[in-house]
Design a protein around this nucleic acid. Structure first.
Lengths: 360, 360
DNA sequence: TTGTATGCGTTATCAA
DNA sequence: TTGATAACGCATACAA
């Protein structure tokens, strides 16, 4: 049987209250007794029962992280970021993967994290309005990545700006027939990232005087395989794109594979730009929009700790910058295509071409 | 204030004991009262307090997962596997990342998971003998991936066989000057995987009558960058290898990048084989030894559930098979190198060459 | 600075 | 089948 606080109290010849105080480093304990208690605890190999402690204090010392995937690069990076600052501040991390539809439903039906966590971090999860409300009703601080929930803390990148930068990069290179491989759309619930990026894509094209062509948008669902299919679909068009913006690197990888298998090359045949700066993007020499992934996790955890400590009253919203990383898969458009009546791109210096890494 | 079991009891006009029984689906509750209790709980939006429950029952319903990284592909896959079966059986997953040295030390000094988890899953962690004992002394079932701890459940691949297959594949292709990019060695604690693989590498070479050359072993520490450096080191040798076995795909990726940057190509200049079948291995057309990663996580979780339910008394050990996946980065050695006096490889059918995916 | 006593929300034992 | 009640192990308001 493991030693309890009573055993320690007996051994140190003090009350359990004093043991509790001494062990938690509270003031109002003389150095002498504190030392006695510490030694007694040490000798008995005492370790606190978190459950009893939680029950008595109402705090759990753990933060729930709710996400749709644990095995995708992006999420594992974010979790690592969260973990590092949580751990440094003596908080535990309870992982809740809602990727499975049934798990998702049960989660909101049973609210199993109620009273189990001091705070919640929600990563990029498509949530209905009712589900958002359910989270808020837990009455713990909630920090959200990627989407927005009223009353919650927020961390995100400027998706519109990132996507715009990507498309502008292609336009600057002289491309006018620009496709987009989009992420998971059509989900009725609130995961706005793909919508925002797609909107930016259309807007930038419109601003450049390029007519909208729905055929140039192919769904890739944020997967490698699906990205590959999307690229195949785009290439099968009567008038295929000369450049493609994939809104995730993984989809861009799939796109590159399709090119490869068809005997085509980036950027000679088609320019490809991704989004994320995935760890293998450099390996594949993929031009992309970089976002600080683990850092966003750290920020989320910091927000939560601030909320918990009362350091910050009002939920804040922090937007972290993205940055264009120019690598080898994007290049100048070959020639102005005759069938288009738009002016060919002006020649002249192309900063994107020279800087391998350009601050956006 | 959230409703407690007392509120439910009052509303259903029964005792708290009956509520507890009814909600947990225990027998000895009449259907009528059970329904009454269920409805009362529903109406009050009652949700149980896991801490109180744990305190009273001694069970926590959560499994601790202790690992050295959360953001590396391999580990995130394993965690996903664990999570899926744990979640399906109503267990929570407490993530404990011991990658940081200080966190590691504190973990074993304070044993913060004692009384906090019903069981432990340990992933590929270098542990001293004392640390292993500390884990066992928690008196909960422990399942271990990759290394061995007496008295614990085990899941692993046959590392010797996997590594041997890799090296034999290169030998079968006619290579005789074969380098190895090794993982993290030199750690005094018990993480045996790299040791076993290195031993297999040496043994297979010896069996083929190829003399041992320590210069052909370069450390890559399981990282991309370090793998790249290791390859550079091997290529700078007076007599560089014609083929390289990297004991992880990530290191192989780095190796490929080095080749690429030096204007060399696999397999024309150097054959490269990895280990893992990382998700981007296919993308890079990397020949590799595949291991079922998420599946190993599932097996670990199953073992734990068996132990917890008492279904299995004695800890078991399951070894999952690896399999050679032949892709484009390995090819036949160009010519028998004149400076070696060993017989040149016999020509003839090379099954590894034809089957894209060969069961080892 | 220290001790006493109560409460936290369950489960489990025993009795009814 | 149900109820009363004692743990479970700690934190904390209050008293000393």
């Amino acid at each position: 049987m493991a030693a309890s606080i009573i055993d320690v109290a007996r051994r140190a010849d003090v009350s359990t209250a004093t043991v509790s105080r001494a062990l938690r480093g509270l003031p109002n304990v003389s150095e002498a007794t504190r030392e006695r208690v510490l030694r007694a605890a040490e000798e008995l190999q005492y370790s606190i029962s978190p459950h009893a402690s939680s029950l008595a204090s109402g705090r759990t010392g753990t933060v729930g992280v709710v996400l749709p995937f644990v095995n995708r690069w992006f999420y594992s990076q974010v979790v690592a970021g969260i973990d590092s600052v949580l751990r440094a501040n003596d908080h535990d991390l309870l992982l809740y993967n809602l990727g499975d539809e049934r798990v998702h439903e049960r989660f909101f039906a049973r609210m199993p994290l109620r009273r189990r966590v001091d705070a919640l971090i929600v990563l990029n999860l498509p949530l209905s309005a009712a589900e958002c409300e359910a989270l808020v009703s837990m009455e713990v601080p909630v920090a959200v990545l990627g989407t927005r929930i009223p009353g919650c803390w927020h961390v995100s990148i400027d998706n519109a700006e990132g996507a715009s930068t990507a498309v502008r990069h292609l336009i600057n290179l002289g491309h006018r027939r620009i496709g987009m491989i989009t992420g998971a759309l059509g989900d009725p619930r609130g995961f706005t990232t793909p919508i925002v990026r797609q909107h930016a894509y259309r807007t930038v094209l419109a601003q450049a005087g390029i007519p909208y062509d729905p055929d140039l948008e192919a769904p890739g669902y944020f997967g490698i395989e699906e990205g590959a299919s999307a690229m195949a679909q785009l290439l099968s068009l009567p008038d295929p794109p000369t450049a493609v913006f994939a809104e995730s690197d993984q989809m861009a990888f799939g796109a590159l594979r399709t090119l490869n298998r068809m005997g085509l090359k980036a950027p000679d045949d088609v320019s490809v730009i991704g989004f994320d700066n995935h760890e293998t993007a450099e390996l594949l020499d993929l031009t992309t929009i970089a976002q600080p992934v683990a850092h966003q996790g750290e920020l989320l955890a910091r927000q939560i700790l601030d909320a918990l400590s009362g350091a910050s009253e009002e939920p804040t919203r922090v937007v972290v910058p993205t940055r264009l990383v120019v690598r080898g898969t994007t290049g100048a458009a070959r020639v102005a295509r005759p069938q288009h009546r738009h002016p060919s791109p002006r020649p002249g210096p192309e900063p994107d071409q020279h800087d391998r890494t350009t601050a956006r």
